[in-house]
Design a protein around this nucleic acid. Structure first.
Lengths: 336, 336
DNA sequence: TTGTATGCGTTATCAT
DNA sequence: ATGATAACGCATACAA
């Protein structure tokens, strides 16, 4: 391994001088600096991030936390998009990323301890149970954090516009003549609460009455449970004309169930999803859904986290809402 | 930050003693060791991975390389499954993972340099252009590596059983009466070569003649190009009875094209995919496909890499083939 | 059984 | 403009 010591010997200067030259310190003679940089290149020198981190107390490494209770984690397209964009933006700014989990090998650590152990400069909490004491401990620690779709007090967060997204979908469906809307929703997280509330509020403001039967629980990213909920809806004496699914993937469960009943989309039943993952637009008919700005959420999270890390003095917590966009698709029929 | 120095003061022993006690060295009196561990716990001590790495020359950190030219990268379900399982196995063995890319921030590095910069103990090369000189440099360096679906000389690799997988699919289709088989394949990587060769060889051994028109190029994970290839097949004077797609996702492009022509699956046309991603079994009809053991490939990759890192003396390069499994699905019709 | 001393590669402070 | 020195937190060879 080539170190600054090797360079200092080759150049006949001290290690301090080499370090300064390589970091562009102003108090080094330009020609000396150039000579040193030349040698460094010639020798194939690479800075050692480990030594630098130890000395500087900065690792240029940020943690990413995907703690999905269901285990689907990064496997889901929405989250892998976020991971991808967090990674891209972090790398653009000179940071590597490390996954934060609990229980590394033999040692049992919680999230906070893991982040400390790896000297993470900050952590993006992308997906987690925000009631988990271990998550709360991390979010309230001295480590800079940014959360996605949840806000801790005095911390930065990136939010998707669940309220507006759901409102847009309801209005879109309403404009096409639908008045009997059913909503299959995911587990009762804060995101779900916002979506359900926005669904009900928008319906109310449009003069639509939603029977209690039309609001049904399921599980995010679990086609099976949405299939069951769909079956329950179909068993009602009076059926909806349009079904809202918790997410695009869950819709697939509903799709199968509808097919099984010989119900065609959108001829006999209209449907909408949520997320707008690429898959939703590959399917035929293209799904009517609301695309969350996953890429932007990820890059904003990385950007704000690093801003906080690098300028702790001028930093203030903030919540950014990333707008999504309605994808019209072809699964909502115009009815009379 | 609590360091071993703090503990040593609190216990009235030297730092060396603390270090030994915490690492379970045999030459420390049991009661002393216990007292020290007690204090460490009481003070909330956490080892500092950075300092340890600098001293020991081992970071307990492995790099993961996903360099997808198409950019789909970890977003594709197959790769995110691999990432997930590499991560899980690495963590089980006490290792964190870091993404290896080129060009971190301002500094321009190639993959090898990035891995060195972060002191990675080894790298899993999960997805890459194996002709890229930067990949070759890494694979031939002193850094332990394991590659997926490609073998470098004297290096460990994890291979999916492309030959057997394709053979199984062809035989399955053959047994159901199909004799006119078309194959839309992905870009000409070594994986593709194996699949194409196995397709042709199995057909030959079954006495099936495959017209040159029936082998058509497309792009992996790109439904559009497979849709176009499907269209081309449908324009032939004599059509196939079964179409093999490059992968499950690409099949969706074919599906749309078939629908557009009013062709129903599997009534009018049989199809098979490749990969066996969860999505393929959510769709209706369930896709006939070959499930690659992505989870096992990832965990084996991590396991063998770490074995090589920890026992460099007794280590020998090896290639492990991970068996997949045919998913029967419902997209191949029995014909006369 | 415990402690002393040293160094991993780097940056920062303070002399020169 | 340059260099000597210390320090970051830890592990280890060796001395006591």
């Amino acid at each position: 391994m080539v170190t600054i010591t090797d360079i200092s010997k080759a150049c006949g200067v001290s290690r301090a001088t080499v370090s300064k030259a390589l970091n562009g310190a102003p108090d080094i003679a330009p020609k000396t600096a150039e000579r040193i940089r030349e040698q460094a290149r010639a020798l194939g020198y690479l800075p050692n991030a480990t030594a630098r981190a130890l000395k500087m107390g900065r690792s240029y490494n940020i943690g990413v936390l995907f703690s999905d209770p269901t285990g689907s984690g990064i496997t889901h397209e929405y989250f892998s998009q976020i991971l991808e964009s967090v990674k891209a933006e972090a790398e653009r700014l000179g940071y590597d990323i490390t996954f934060i989990s609990k229980d590394l090998g033999a040692m049992s650590m919680d999230f906070y301890e893991h982040a400390k152990y790896r000297s993470c400069d900050g952590v993006v909490i992308a997906s987690a149970d925000f009631q988990d004491p271990a998550i709360i401990r991390l979010a309230q620690s001295e480590i800079p954090t940014v959360t996605l779709d949840y806000t801790f007090d005095s911390r930065t967060s990136i939010l998707s516009d669940n309220v507006r997204g759901m409102e847009a979908l309801v209005r879109f469906v309403y404009e096409r003549g639908h008045r009997r809307l059913a909503f299959i929703h995911g587990e009762m997280t804060s995101v779900t609460q916002k979506r359900v509330a926005s669904f009900k509020k928008t319906c109310a403001s449009l003069g639509i009455t939603v029977p209690g039967d039309f609001i049904r629980p399921a599980v995010y990213h679990d086609p099976r449970s949405s299939g069951l909920a769909t079956r329950a809806l179909l068993a009602l004496p009076e059926q909806p004309t349009c079904i809202f699914y918790p997410d695009d993937l869950s819709f697939l469960g509903g799709m199968s169930e509808l097919e099984r009943h010989g119900i065609s989309i959108p001829k006999d039943m209209s449907v909408v999803g949520y997320d707008g993952i690429p898959l939703s637009q590959i399917l035929r008919p293209r799904l009517t859904t609301y695309r969350q700005g996953a890429e932007r959420m990820g890059s904003e999270a990385a950007r704000l986290l690093i801003e906080q890390i690098e300028h702790p003095d001028t930093w203030l917590p903030q919540s950014i809402t990333v707008e999504g966009e309605l994808l019209e698709g072809d699964t909502v029929r115009i009815i009379g």
